[in-house]
């Protein structure tokens, strides 16, 4: 791999008057023990848009994503410094209720991880725990979220079957349905299609494009075609540094940074 300068960067400025920012980070650094995984990452994510995070394995894109809803809190050796601004609050600061925050910043993981409960319970479990008891409302929630995730037609007669009996692609869409049942502001997706076959992948992609109407989506992907197909903005990560942030169109046609150019044209990664 060629050595690229970490100073050769480009960040498309987003005018706050024209673009509403849903969440942003300011000089975010992530450490695992003595190793630094993310260096001064500053990015802004526009509301109701899809932003893709791309980069080679080990570039830190997943680590960055997991920091946004503080999933790294659960790793004892991890330390995150810098600001994560959401609704005018630094949610990386103290005094923030992380459990409450994660209701609004949802996440879908790389490997489908449905609970070993029924399809119905997978979706209603968390809302019930958060205090929603009305059966009619829960039923309605199951139907709308499964429809949004393009799963309703396939499972509407088996809602009380175990979710583990579903195929991988269906499981992942169930996980998306489960996440949007919380009505989050922001949906973080960590390579949601990497464990799926091509057909399931394209269904998940269609789902995401539909979801953009109501959710701000940030997606980590290994698959550049996928980023090009579905995202509005793209950020390119390299060895823990964000080297370029631009509209997806620009990134894939006229990248400003040499490293981005090499990566998207397939020279490394």
């Amino acid at each position: 791999m060629q050595n690229y300068s970490f100073d050769d960067t480009y960040f498309l400025p987003l005018d706050p008057k024209k673009h509403e920012i849903a969440i942003s980070t300011d000089d975010l650094n992530v450490y695992y023990g003595d190793n630094q995984a993310i260096f001064d990452a500053s990015l802004q994510f526009e509301r109701f848009k899809i932003t893709a995070l791309i980069g080679a394995s080990g570039s830190g894109k997943s680590t960055y994503l997991r920091s946004l809803n503080r999933m790294n809190d659960n790793i004892a050796s991890a330390k995150v410094t810098g600001k994560i601004m959401y609704r005018d609050l630094d949610i990386n600061g103290s005094g923030i209720d992380t459990y409450e925050m994660r209701k609004h910043i949802g996440m879908v993981f790389q490997r489908p991880n449905p609970f070993s409960k029924s399809i119905y319970d997978n979706i209603t479990f968390a809302p019930k725990r958060h205090g929603l008891k009305d059966k009619a409302k829960l039923d309605e929630m199951v139907e709308t979220t499964l429809k949004e995730a393009a799963l309703w037609d396939q499972v509407k007669d088996d809602l009380h079957q175990s979710a583990l009996a579903l195929s991988g692609g269906q499981q992942q869409r169930l996980c998306i349905a489960r996440a949007i049942a919380m009505k989050p502001d922001i949906l973080l997706l960590d390579e949601p299609a990497s464990a799926l076959d091509p057909i399931s992948t394209s269904t998940v992609e269609e789902t995401l494009i539909r979801l953009r109407e109501h959710y701000t989506i940030i997606i980590v992907t290994h698959n550049m075609q996928q980023a090009a197909r579905i995202s509005d903005y793209t950020a390119f990560f390299h060895l823990g540094h964000v080297l370029e942030f631009n509209t997806t169109k620009e990134i894939f046609t006229t990248p400003k940074v040499k490293a981005t150019d090499d990566y998207v044209s397939g020279h490394f990664g």
């Binding site: 994660r102 209701k103 968390a126 725990r129």
Partner: peptide, 27 residues
């Protein structure tokens, strides 16, 4: 029980305790 199950609960705004009692323990 896989750690991903715990992450699933946490990402839905549940506490680790609730996740363990209602998801991990049954498994």
């Amino acid at each position: 029980v896989a750690f991903t199950q715990r992450e699933a609960g946490l990402a839905l705004g549940l506490s680790r305790w609730e996740t363990v009692i209602h998801v991990i323990l049954p498994e």
